[in-house]
Design a protein around this nucleic acid. Structure first.
Lengths: 207, 207
DNA sequence: CCATCCTATTGACACCTGTTCAATAAGCAA
DNA sequence: TTGCTTATTGAACAGGTGTCAATAGGATGG
């Protein structure tokens, strides 16, 4: 590695972030030394510090990149009724986890271990949740309790998709999506009758 | 700290595990150096290695202690119908998180960051889930899909309880328990009619 | 084609943290 | 008090993090 290759800052940064996502997906954050990242990228340790200043800052940048990709790639459609939009958004979510599994896992892993990374994670999921409901107020009343339920529902969705990827348990992708999209209305109804429109139950029917 | 105090191995081990739970609850695993643990406990670094051999082994022991406490303190009642037992078990769960918040958080944090710690976490939650349903087969058919749903429901429950502790969002403890216990039957019904008994819907009523 | 400049990149260095191990001393028994 | 067991220590080593002046790739102007 005595031959140094000079890239533009953008190229180098992209390379390092992509590498970070790949590495952080399979190993825990503190298992990966700066040496490993540098060796894998074919650069010196110093260059990593030049671009990110800090090991923590590097992890933060990697997690932020994964979070941004999640938000960008799960944009819901503008049109359609609430139920359809919810289903479309969940489909995009499942597809994202399927396609960017490594990046998603590194975001989740990071979120649990550090408050700063947790904040990035929360911001991304807050955006996901808000995006679905802010335009469709009649689907669910925007109360603190409802937001709490949505939060729990998101945690369930994440666990279900990740577990389903590991072992589908006989469920097809469509059946999984039916459970994910169908669960939110019935969960919100648990808060008490009158909080949501009755149309939500339409999703609970099986194909 | 030149004055050394000699304890029995059991006392010392207890002291260090308790301290570990307190520390790991508020800081991420790699933020806590052996020096900090040793200084906080008033002992030398070497003694920690004498008792746990390894930093990783220490973290594992701390997480295992928290997991054991969870399983022990949430034992459900022997008698009662499925719905009552589920509610009792969830009550014990909420109470545990309330009383042992630090230990619970350190278990959750650890589980996400390391496969070994994750295995301990999974084992504890697998025991929790199995305990509720293995004796009440008619409450839910024991299929792979149902187990997947239970897994997701547990993730949701965890998120709800932790978020609720941070901000109750206007929900009383009883209302939270109603959502937790009431959500499992309706979620299982999403898998398709006929999987569960209709009695589950009784829980969904509001007080 | 060559000289020059900018800056991406490096390598050596200081510091901190995990880990080992022979030496030490606290408490108990005789 | 003396001796013994072993809980406990502190110094030494290895490896990783973070710093900075020195180096060299490659584009630019002549």
């Amino acid at each position: 590695m005595s031959q140094r290759t000079r890239l533009t800052p953008e190229q180098r940064r992209e390379q390092l972030l992509d590498l970070g996502i790949r590495l952080f997906a399979n190993h825990s954050l503190d298992e990966i030394s700066i040496d490993v990242v540098a060796r894998e990228a074919g650069i010196s340790r110093g260059l990593l510090y030049h671009y990110f200043g800090d090991k923590m800052a590097f992890r933060e940048a990697v997690v932020r990149r994964a979070a941004d990709a999640l938000v960008a790639q799960t944009a819901p459609p503008e049109a359609g009724d609430p139920v359809e939009r919810l289903l479309a958004s969940m489909t995009a979510y499942v597809d994202f986890v399927d396609a960017n599994y490594e990046g998603y896992v590194s975001m989740v892993r990071g979120a649990a271990s550090d408050p700063v990374l947790r904040a990035i994670y929360d911001e991304a999921f807050g955006a996901l949740g808000a995006r679905i409901f802010e335009a469709d107020v009649d689907f669910v009343a925007d109360t603190a309790a409802a937001r709490l339920i949505v939060r729990g529902w998101q945690a369930m969705s994440e666990e279900l998709v990740l577990s389903w990827k590991a072992d589908s348990a006989g469920l097809s992708r469509e059946e999984l999506l039916g459970v994910l999209a169908g669960s939110l209305p019935v969960l919100l109804e648990l808060l008490g009758p009158g909080s949501g429109s009755g149309s939500g139950s339409a999703v609970t029917r099986r194909s």
